[in-house]
Design a protein around this nucleic acid. Structure first.
Lengths: 215, 215
DNA sequence: GCGCTAACCTAACGCCGTTAGGTAATCCTA
DNA sequence: TAGGATTACCTAACGGCGTTAGGTTAGCGC
């Protein structure tokens, strides 16, 4: 308590120049990790290989990350932050009422599908957790929570409740998972996307009209 | 060509007693592998641990399987054979015409959901391929193909085409994937299953009525 | 009883993530 | 600007992994 910040004692106390360099190297490691993950699969990432790709030996990586898991964690957080940025730009274009519900949802779906399929390694890390024992840290998890919060917000503005969100999530999960599994990197299932959205819209419209029914 | 069977020269030439014993041990290894996979995750399976659990040392497993991948492959094939058995019993109860389409699909969905959620490790192995580099052998793949063929057959009898199958697969993939990811071993999403089926039925009914339309 | 081979074993290879412990460069303070 | 601290790397090594090499023993057909 007496001498300043006991939290994060190493990095936190760095002067700006060094700190920037440290952060720069950290980012370089992460970018290289993404490149390797894309080439050989997220589960095939090796610290020795990663270290060599950035011009180090494996143990030196531990200056920047305390474990391999923490590298995965940082990548996981990066992925969700990126998705968060992308869903944020969707929101100003939302209609003020429930008009254009279908169009909004089509845009939403296309954006999500594009995000998921443009980087299969990222998709696996974010949605499938293929590394045995990997559990994202609370900080990393926070971004993913905010993505869902904002999804809830957008759906509320379209007059859709939490059950609709669950249904929506099933649809989006289903089509992207199948795309990644059967044709990673491609977009063979993209033509089905609008049909899924239409099906969904028809369903929730029916629910709303016959309101007060079950559940 | 001259001297009998050059295929599978070791196991194929065994006398019955030995052969049975060999197959028995093989099954014991697989059952133990399933137990370990269920306890610690399919990706955490270790040959040394597996060997110890069946009272061997790791290299001795190579008498029964040529590699760890081949153990995964055998488990993969087992999983799909089991699912095949389960969908087979569905077929005698199918209606002769398109009557009871919704009921048939509800049964279909419930059965699939139950199969997927009752063993998360099996689900991951069959549907998510979490082991880097694992590719099922053609023989193992055959069972999974037959499951799909029979699905096509059942759907045809209900008057549903291949596009409907794709949509159906998205739905089933979506809800099971989410169940496994968010609450492995539970059935929190089961209540949404009938709603998904209703949505699907309403959609394909609409497509059929307004026939000759797009796509 | 003899030869064959399945069914095990131990030892070891090269990989992995990680730790211990050392050294050189860089920075802040006096 | 010299001294002390700390970062940013290194090499060596540990225990674990899947796998291979090479050996021994037990069970089988002839």
């Amino acid at each position: 308590m007496a001498d300043g910040e006991p939290l994060d004692p190493i990095v936190g106390a760095l002067p700006d120049r060094r700190r920037r360099r440290h952060e720069g190297t950290k980012n370089e490691i992460l970018e290289t990790a993404w490149a390797l993950a894309r080439r050989e699969g997220i589960g095939a990432l090796s610290l020795r290989e990663l270290a060599e790709a950035v011009g180090m030996k494996a143990p030196s990586l531990y200056t920047y990350f305390p474990s391999k898991q923490s590298i995965y964690d940082a990548m996981f957080a990066q992925g969700w932050r990126l998705l968060l940025e992308r869903v944020k730009v969707l929101e100003p274009n939302l209609p003020q009422d429930e008009h254009l519900k279908a169009e909004s949802l089509r845009t939403e779906a296309r954006d999500f599908f594009a995000f998921c399929t443009e980087d299969p390694a990222r998709y696996q890390l974010m949605f499938q957790r293929p590394m045995p024992g990997f559990v994202p840290s609370p900080e990393a998890y926070a971004s993913s929570e905010e993505v869902f919060d904002r999804l809830r917000g957008r759906f509320a503005r379209l007059g859709l409740d939490d059950d609709a969100i669950e249904l929506w999530t099933f649809l989006m999960t289903g089509i992207t998972a199948r795309q990644i599994a059967n044709e990673p990197g491609g977009d063979r299932y993209l033509p089905y996307l609008d049909e899924l959205v239409d099906m969904f819209v028809a369903h929730v419209e029916l629910q709303t009209k016959g309101k007060g029914r079950k559940r």
